[in-house]
């Protein structure tokens, strides 16, 4: 039986991925799941045996898959259902993640499974693994202005993310935290992956700011490209990401699986079209008045900023 092709949303973290995924996930033809993060590894068991040095928050990485399995196969997200999901995963611990993902796809068919895990952009093998697992998938590449994205990463958890992914600039023998390097390299990783492995008709680049400023128009275009309903009712439903079963905190044993800020307030508010910061101005996070690197500026211009 052929399954409907899944949708992957890829973008560096803090690029509106959670909100856009939440909106697309409540489309009547789509089933949006939390961040599964399963494609980091070959098998599920590896996700359970990650050491502390491997990730900054190893147990949280499993919350997405546990909540998804609990909701899809057990019909609820309670501690008992999460325990069931643990057992479900344990029975499939030696499976290739492709087969696990296929089982999830089959369970939600005829709906199309939508997955987004922004950290895939740091690991090209992870992107390649999900594409090899689902060669018929559609990929949405979401972009965000470098200054906005960098400010956002720095404002979360004291800027731990750029630290954890090693986004350092070296000047005068000193390591300076500069998230623009992560913005550039993660986007380059995505572009390298898309341009080398994915046929052009299977991916679409979308400006996050444009989508939030004109949701009706942009979502309609997106639906048409994905081949799903684009009538008014479908668009209206997509404006309510809070209706997703994953748009809140899970039970104690699997609280997360998504951006906690979104889980606290999963409502969509249409944003006014704002003037984006200039690409040549001094950066607010650099005390030395440094600006964006020429490579970062060139890439941002290529994205239309």
């Amino acid at each position: 039986m052929s399954l409907p092709p899944p949708i992957f949303l890829i973008a560096p973290p803090r690029s509106f991925t959670t909100l856009v995924s939440g909106m697309l996930g409540v489309h009547p033809d789509v089933y949006g799941v939390p961040e599964l993060t399963i494609f980091y590894r070959e098998t599920l068991s590896e996700l359970w045996t990650l050491g502390r040095a491997d990730t900054s928050s190893d147990t949280r990485m499993r919350h997405g898959i546990l909540r998804a399995v609990a909701e899809i196969f057990f019909g609820e997200q309670t501690d008992a259902a999460i325990a069931g999901a643990e057992r479900w995963c344990a029975r499939r611990q030696d499976w290739h993640v492709r087969d696990v993902f296929t089982e999830l796809r089959a369970a939600v068919a005829p709906l199309r499974l939508l997955e987004k895990s922004p950290d895939y952009t740091l690991k090209p093998e992870a992107m390649l693994r999900f594409f090899e697992s689902c060669p018929d998938c559609k990929i949405i590449f979401l972009t965000r202005h470098p200054v906005g994205q960098c400010k956002s990463t720095l404002s979360i958890n004291d800027g731990a993310y750029p630290f954890n992914c090693n986004s350092f600039a070296f000047e005068n023998g000193q390591a300076i935290l500069d998230p623009q390097i992560a913005w550039h390299d993660m986007n380059v990783n995505v572009l390298n992956f898309l341009e080398t492995h994915v046929p052009k008709d299977q991916y679409l680049r979308v400006m996050g700011e444009a989508l939030l400023a004109d949701p009706e128009g942009e979502l309609k275009n997106l639906c048409r490209w994905l081949g799903i309903r684009d009538d008014e009712d479908a668009i209206e439903q997509m404006k309510h990401p809070e209706r997703s079963p994953f748009a809140n905190f899970g039970p104690i044993s699997a609280l997360f699986g998504n951006d906690p800020n979104f889980q606290r307030n999963p409502h969509f508010k249409k944003q006014r079209a704002r003037t984006l910061p200039p690409l040549d101005g001094p950066l607010p996070w650099r005390k030395d008045g440094a600006t964006l690197y020429p490579e970062v500026r060139a890439l941002a211009e290529e994205f239309g900023y």
């Binding site: 990650l50 491997d54 740091l122 090693n166 986004s167 600039a169 390299d185 380059v188």
Partner: peptide
Amino acid sequence: MRKTLGQVCYPRREQVF
């Protein structure tokens, strides 16, 4: 292939440079 600027990595490694 486009070139990266730094050495962003995942998972976090003990030694990067």
